[in-house]
Nucleic acid binder design. Sequence first.
RNA 1: GGCGCUAUCGUCUAGGGGUUAGGACGGAAGAUUCUCAAUCUUCAAACCCGGGUUCGAUUCCCGGUAGCGCUACCA
Length: 503
Amino acid sequence: MSTAAKVRVRFAPSPTGQLHVGNARTALFNWLFARQAGGVMVLRIEDTDVARSEARFEDQLLGDLKWLGIDWDEGPDVGGPHAPYRQSDRLELYREHAERLVKEGKAYPCFCSQEELERDRERALQHQQPPIYSGKCRGLDPEESQRRRANGEAAAIRLRIPEHPIRFHDIVHGPVEFSNEVVSDPIILRSTGIPVYNYVVVVDDALMDITHVIRGDDHLSNTPKQVALYEALGWPVPEFAHLSTILGSDRERLSKRHGATSIANFREMGVLPEALVNYLALLGWAPTGGTREIFSPEELIKEFSLQRVTPSPAVFDMEKLYWLNRHYIKQSPPERIEKLAEPFFVRAGMLPENLDEHTRAWFSKMIALLVPSVDKLDQLPERAALIFRFDAAAAVNSPDNAEVLASPKTADVLAAFAAQVEGDSSPMTPERFKTIMNEVKARTGAKGKELFHPVRVALTGSHSGPEFDKLIPILEEGSQLPLPQHVMNVRERLAAFRAACGK
RNA sequence: GGCGCUAUCGUCUAGGGGUUAGGACGGAAGAUUCUCAAUCUUCAAACCCGGGUUCGAUUCCCGGUAGCGCUACCA
């Protein structure tokens, strides 16, 4: 291939379901490669499997890719010089080239019935032989075949596999060689006239001038057939790059069984797209030196290299994704996180549909308080339970609090704290809280944990939690806001807690 | 069954004929804080097995094993 040839890659998903992380990673590597080379990214929809393809999946697919920040220069939605970009719209093309191959003697009609083939196959398997096509119709006289077809006899079209080993180059695996003995003449056009995937993909890739085929390594074993097809069709063979499989923690192919696997799942969990992109890039690829982990999409475009892609399969590690997600959440402008987090709170019944100015300002403070402790945005409402769902009775009865509540100083501390709070109706500010605590400390002699833990339990229901300095204003201001769920302020909490203790 | 691909800490990986085999996630410990989270510091943790080549293999070659994939008128 000449170096002047413009890089053209394609991502060719089937619209049969959600975009899976494995495919997303393939799309990403294609995109990174294209953008780095200043090449063209093509999106092609492989919808020849009519039974499983659905239009709504195609829309989702495009949406998921866009969400990840992956764009394309040619595709079903934007068109392009090689349109159409949906295989179902290209059927005529496939038939045309198949007939051409037959005419040139590079392919031939096969009249074997499916039952017959199935029998052969089973027999071969029983005798522990490779179940390859017998070649029965290979030697049929072309004119005779032509006549039978003209008479309406159903025939599939098979490619004649050459009598020599098939070699090709793979950027991540190096040179690959397959013996032709094991690649029996594949069917390219079914007797129904519907073309077969391995054929279609070659016609499309060739006609779309794809220079680099970057895809999952489940296609590696299909590649010899495809190479034979390119050669039979008289088209240049592209470069290949077969990406390893992504596995689950049990080293089995990643599936729904392993939890979140679709891009939509991650989006709904509150994983940021740049975190997912960064993580996916690191699955199977590492930069020179191998020590850097954080990459923006722009940096990935600069650094990425197919030559540095590992051939070995990688286990998807949710913890590392979370680490990156935490990183990007902290890096983000707070307004962005607030905006993304808002729906989670609305859904949890903690926020109204539309926030007024005061509520928004308050919400912003709360997010700042909660955000350091979450892996993903959907954990925010549960972290906010200490603000929205204070339950005095549960606090009193919780085994986690038993030790604190049984501690000798606790009763004194709480009594002194209550006396201070109740003896003064001025607003509860962090400063006032501090003053009160100092007073309680002086009166009871308690300090450190024995001072703070009882108060913490009484006000939040737990002996662990965020700093009071930040928490108190959120409680106080929250209690003034018209929220779907009332936020109890310090006085309310204390009263409820003491009442619960009394029982 | 055949063919193919793969094999470095638990995980993602760097490296490579002689190295203290590096980084990151996670784990552990410590610092900090009333506590949790965050943050910082430190620690533990790996070359699948067997042959060969070689003065020397984790690295190169062969075999084994294991995992995965393909073996369709699926994609």
